[in-house]
Design a protein around this nucleic acid. Structure first.
Length: 217
DNA sequence: GACCAGGCACATC
DNA sequence: GATGTGCATGGT
């Protein structure tokens, strides 16, 4: 596990994640990027920035159809407009629009509150917790799952919690480390780990198990 | 034109 | 409890 990290870091260098200028922008991005490439999300966020709506209170006042129109480039835009609204209502109604107040809450409690929002699942919650609130929780995504199972480090059918537990057990509790490691996993996933799993040219190819990658997922 | 992207909720069996 | 489906734009 540590060696995996070392190899990735050596090859790709620091990733400077999350690409967002404020914690609030990170939160919005976390919802918008669900099953969607970051490039599309960036356009949507740019629309919100142009409209000067990148703060909880302004965005909460906007009606859901106008919000949907602005985030259109991110895909699933009607669905995501509702999901954003649900998240905004937590921020505004429970924390009076203050992210500082929200982030003062302890990790397990805040994680539960986020998960209780319709449209926020484990990955989105953990992304917000790690990259916006800077709390030590590992973010598991499809790339994480794919890379680890190909390398025989987890069983292919391992669920979210199990994979996350594995990182928490193996690594020191360290926000910058979790941040960088997850970013590197996405990076290698985007660069080399596409559907056909030959792993050619991958910086991790030399550390695959005997007989190559374990399966196409 | 197919296939994919930094998921999640809900329906159905 | 397991499996299937809708959601949608933009890049390869």
């Amino acid at each position: 596990m540590h060696q995996l990290y070392e190899q990735l870091y050596e090859h790709f260098g620091p990733q400077q994640w999350w690409p967002g200028e404020s914690p609030f922008e990170v939160m919005v991005g976390a919802v918008l990027t669900q099953n969607t490439s970051w490039k599309n999300v960036a356009r949507a966020i740019e629309n919100l920035r142009q409209a000067e709506l990148l703060d909880p209170l302004s965005l909460y006042e906007l009606d859901v159809e106008e919000l949907a129109e602005l985030i259109r480039p991110a895909g699933y835009f009607r669905l995501k407009a509702r999901r954003l609204r649900n998240l905004l209502s937590l921020i505004v109604e429970r924390y009076d629009g203050s992210l500082d107040a929200m982030f003062a809450v302890d990790l397990p409690t805040l994680r539960e509150q986020l998960l209780s929002v319709n449209g926020i699942g484990p990955e989105t919650a953990d992304s917000i917790l790690l990259y916006a609130a800077e709390k030590p929780t590992f973010v598991v995504d499809t790339y994480t799952h794919r890379v680890l199972s190909r390398h025989g480090l987890i069983e292919p059918e391992a669920d979210y919690h199990r994979i996350q537990q594995f990182f928490h057990d193996e690594l020191p509790t360290d926000v910058p480390l979790y941040n960088e490691f997850h970013a590197l996993l996405v990076r290698v996933g985007n660069a080399h780990c596409r559907r056909t799993p030959k792993c050619e040219g991958c910086p991790l190819a030399h550390m695959l198990p005997e007989g190559g990658p374990l399966l196409p997922e």
